[in-house]
Design a protein around this nucleic acid. Structure first.
Lengths: 124, 124
DNA sequence: CTAATTGCAAACAGTTTGCAGGCGT
DNA sequence: ACGCCTGCAAACTGTTTGCAATTAG
């Protein structure tokens, strides 16, 4: 792979994740980054996100029925809470999976995703 | 809403869910239904699926990072297992959510989704 | 007969890709 | 100066919609 360059647009995209500590969709990233680089192209955002996932600095967060979002990788194990009113996604520390689950013979679990849905404090 | 008609294509689509007891994607439904109605249009499949969800006979199953699938409604509470090799989705009876989860103040959980990923018996 | 339903194709939304010019190094 | 990166527009994929022809009741 080619050496990486330090561009304004890439910096603006990385900064978005430092400012906002919740999973962001491509268009949310675009909105945030466009504040410092107004004519930032959507393609650049998608390319940056994919590369950052590739190189391991971002993790894709796929929620049921939602377009993909991204968050910084290296956070400890956690799950997500999706507010049905404001559509924001929050990180919830800890694991909510039962430890003694029973599956039919032959199924080997390698990972799990848990999404809680409901109302966040702002939307009660 | 208008009265419903009994068409070959609609019957073929409903039959698909009676034959295969796992969540089906639109194209899987199309493949199955086309066996009895070869020139079935994709648009018809999408229209039928949306109407069946509307009227409550189907439930959408949205898995992380997957295009939507559908299953018959009225099954008891269960979660899903997604095989990373063959890409099939299986129903897993029972609930895998811990009962004593702690959330920050003010979050009200109304529902939850759990998806297990791994290898199914066929793909070990 | 009458209107709901279908099939096709065009319209859409989100994401990816090709390419010429711009800009780090 | 070299070549990676960006921005634009065109290409793609999955889903929805418009419309004339078909067909159930």
């Amino acid at each position: 792979m080619p050496p990486k360059r330090n561009t304004r647009q890439r910096a603006a995209i990385e900064m978005a994740f430092d400012k906002v500590h919740r999973p962001l969709s491509p268009s949310e990233v675009s909105d945030l980054a466009r504040k410092s680089v107004p004519n930032l192209g959507m393609a650049t955002v998608y390319r940056a996100l994919n590369e950052m996932v590739e190189e391991g600095s971002l993790r894709p967060v796929d929620l049921p029925g939602q377009s993909p979002r991204y968050e910084k990788s290296g956070l400890h194990h956690h799950h997500h809470f999706h507010c049905t009113v404001c559509d924001r996604v929050y990180d919830m520390d800890g694991c909510f999976l039962k430890s003694d689950i029973q599956l039919p013979e032959g199924f080997k679990v390698e990972d799990h995703d848990i999404t809680l849905t409901g109302r966040c404090p702002d939307c009660k």
